[in-house]
Design a protein around this nucleic acid. Structure first.
Lengths: 113, 113
DNA sequence: TAAAAATATAATAATATTTGAATGTATGAC
DNA sequence: GTCATACATTCAAATATTATTATATTTTTA
């Protein structure tokens, strides 16, 4: 069970366009750094920095293959989150029945409904 | 369909402990600012700032009831994300079949497997 | 109409994130 | 052993986020 702080931390770490694209690619399979260089328009050191951040938070890992570093996903919540983000929600949530009582509902005076 | 930039933006906006707690409360129902004051240990102006950020990104909205501002959820992806974050994943993702070919797989020389 | 309650806004200071540039390291090819 | 490749690390500058303090706004009550 993740604490609310851990949840926020996880979201913060993946909440970046480059890191999201990296993670989207990794849901499809293993990729090495130079693979990412082909579709991310950022510098190689910057890619390494993003990969390093993801790895230090236990989201991805890698194995070595010669001089290639082959990265892959390890945190199972990631594919689920990415799927949700790609989902289309045609409707907003239903408006609340006007006007439910909040805890401060004992507020003095008449409610105007 | 959200762009990768929009996905990152959404995650960034909710990736904060106070905002996550606000959103968790709002999945249960309408709450006004002073309700949040009772369980968030942060100042009232700070709560207002978090609420304002969430609202400016179309995640929540409010209606007025006298001098109470009653906030509620409108973005339907939020309850789904919160549910995922609360879910327990006992297993890491399966390690990749060692060693799949990356795009740079044509790397000169023998692969050591 | 004056005071209080509920909340927002603005300005600022502290801190964290992001990127770029330069440099470092390990491996394989020759 | 030397060179090139693939990648990481470090540092610093630019930028963004966060929390605090003070003040403003709106509505309701007295």
């Amino acid at each position: 069970m993740r604490s609310v702080g851990q949840k926020a931390e996880l979201l913060r770490v993946i909440a970046h366009p480059a890191r999201l694209r990296i993670l989207e690619e990794l849901t499809k399979g293993v990729k090495c750094v130079s693979d990412f260089e082909e579709f991310l328009e950022i510098s190689q050191p910057n890619i390494s920095q993003h990969l390093s951040l993801l790895r230090s938070h236990g989201i991805i890992d890698y194995y070595m293959d010669g001089r290639l570093r082959c990265y892959f996903l390890i945190d199972p919540v990631i594919p689920d989150i990415l799927e949700l983000l790609g989902k289309d929600y045609p409707e907003a949530l239903p408006a609340p029945a006007c006007c439910p009582v909040t805890k401060r509902g004992k507020y003095p005076g008449e409610r105007r409904r």
